[in-house]
Design a binder for these strands. Structure first.
Lengths: 144, 144
DNA sequence: ACTTGACCTAGAGGACACTCTAGATTCTAG
DNA sequence: CTAGAATCTAGAGTGTCCTCTAGGTCAAGT
């Protein structure tokens, strides 16, 4: 078990490590988005274990992929409840992967339109013409 | 000029065509996110021209790609002001394309993590084992 | 010892992008 | 002609996801 060597981290260290604010970390805890309870020092300060940090890293990835907090919370709850609900965890993740694929497709479409417009402008600037071709609202092929 | 044939559309038709609500369309107009003024009938109802619809389609793409409304407004303003600011329009679009690329990369990373977790769960369900491998907080390679 | 900075809670506040309401008018189909 | 659907305005409200504030406690360096 090289996994849980007694290292712990302050909230500030964790914030730096996972790219969230300390405010957000406390918010996540309040909202029950974490799997285990975060331990405290005698004086009440949070001590994050490596496993907590790992979970937070997963959280940030899922959030980046557009998973809403409600669903992240659902997932956290399932994990907290322990073995027996793997099918639900799986379907939750699978649904999210589907959404990610859709997002990627949408972004690629948007990227094409942007690129097309960039090309139009670049060509315009190269040609330095003012022949009415440059109304960016013209997206249909019909040109005078 | 096969471009501006007198067809016009009601706000409801446009909403259906571009996938926005009528509320959103009025909101966009109020917020100066449109390029031209939308014409009105004698009784004050909006009449959208094809060019307006085209612009709205561009808007939805840019929004889908994560462009904030403030920037969309800036772009609309530049277009409204007419020729002469193409360089700024270009840099705005180019910056957005850069952000889209970053988003795609982030989504692909998230997708990998999700897929990996899905695989883990699927394998688990196939094997029907409970040997402590299934703590989803374990993201580091170390396994017993 | 003292100062500076990190941390604590509970709750308010803010940014964003709409979404909805109310009350009135107007268009359209039967 | 009339009922119902669509539209109008100005402004308030909503959901999401944090972010910040106030008023403290605690820890570490000098």
């Amino acid at each position: 078990m090289a996994d849980d060597d007694g290292r712990t981290f302050t909230i500030g260290e964790v914030a730096g490590a996972v790219g969230m604010s300390v405010h957000a970390l406390r918010f996540y805890e309040r909202e029950q988005l974490l799997v285990g309870p975060i331990e405290r020092t005698a004086s009440g300060r949070r001590r994050y274990r490596p496993v907590d940090v790992d979970w937070l890293r997963v959280c940030t990835r899922l959030r980046e992929s557009g998973m809403p907090l409600t669903e992240l919370k659902r997932f956290a709850t399932l994990v907290r409840e322990g073995p027996g609900n793997e099918i639900e965890r799986l379907s939750l993740l699978d649904a999210q992967r589907e959404r990610v694929d859709q997002q990627i497709r949408a972004l690629e479409q948007a990227r094409e339109i942007i690129t097309w417009k960039v090309d139009v402008y670049e060509q315009h600037l190269r040609n330095d013409e003012a022949i009415g071709l440059w109304d960016p609202t013209l997206t249909t092929g019909a040109q005078p």
